[in-house]
Design a protein around this nucleic acid. Structure first.
Length: 259
DNA sequence: ATGGCAGGGCACCCCTGA
């Protein structure tokens, strides 16, 4: 089975692309979406179910919003981070085919001197606390989403240009390392990868054409799932579409095993 | 030093994204 994540930057605009992509990628058992930007009352549940999928979602008007689309029913669905103020709809967990999936849209942070920056770090700390418990309950766990953190300089098209900015700052990178220290692995780095591999490119200034991007969308796997992971790839194809999202899907392939 | 592009709200210019 494959699991995938994609920040769609408005599901209202991108739903046809999402359904086309799922049809073209039949091994994707579950797809985590971020930035749906839809209140639950307006979520296209019927359209997604009519296409043969199951779906869970947690959204709000204008900003944020997360969803998980799956080919099998979703169990034990929970929105948000337990014990954390969840006005911003940025987290969703569900179990699909025996795998615990946690879909995250980590706050952007805006800039290092913004109030949103400490909010981002606090959000990540709360996520880490929660996932520690979640991992004890669910050894087969994957955290998928837009982390808004480029883990290392090799995940940045121009590290000198980005130095000192949000998405690459040492405290953000340290927060990601704290998350990994729970026993999670960055699926993409389990394998040899092409240099200059990114998952987001700025709409402005021909960012995609210049490959001026960042790798900020990640799939983190528990030790058990990392053992069964045989590939992790970034699918750049949707970024070439008309009206693309600025992010592209990231896909991890998990070999079937028992237990 | 600034804006570039895109989406949404909601009323046309502003906010946010990354």
């Amino acid at each position: 089975m494959q699991i995938a994540t994609w920040n769609v930057n408005s599901l209202k605009v991108r739903l046809p692309q999402v359904l086309d992509w799922l049809a073209a990628n039949p091994h994707v058992a579950a797809l985590a979406l971020q930035e749906t930007k839809l209140e639950d009352a307006n979520f296209p549940k019927a359209e997604i179910e009519a296409a043969g999928f199951h779906v869970a979602f947690s959204g709000q008007k204008t900003y944020n919003g997360v969803a998980i689309i799956a080919r099998e029913p979703l169990a034990e669905v929970s929105a948000g981070i337990p014990g954390f103020a969840n006005e911003q709809k940025r987290g969703l967990a569900a179990t699909v085919a025996g795998v615990r999936l946690v879909c995250v849209y980590v706050p952007n942070g805006q800039s290092l001197d913004s109030d949103k920056y400490p909010y981002k770090l606090g959000w990540l700390a709360a996520l880490t606390d929660w996932l520690k418990d979640e991992l004890e309950r669910s050894p087969r766990l994957a955290v998928l989403g837009d982390f808004n953190i480029a883990p290392e300089d090799r995940d940045v098209h121009d590290p000198a240009q980005w130095e000192g900015q949000v998405l690459v700052s040492p405290p953000e990178r340290a927060a990601l390392q704290q998350l990994l220290a729970l026993g999670l692995r960055d699926a993409f780095r389990l394998f040899e990868q092409p240099e200059k591999s990114f998952s987001w490119w700025d709409y402005r200034g021909l960012g995609f054409r210049r490959n001026a991007g960042l790798r900020i969308d990640h799939i983190l796997l528990s030790a058990r799932l990392a053992e069964s992971c045989s590939a992790c790839t970034i699918d750049k194809e949707p970024r070439r579409h008309e009206r693309p999202s600025d992010h592209t899907p990231v896909i991890a392939t998990l070999e079937n095993h028992h237990g």
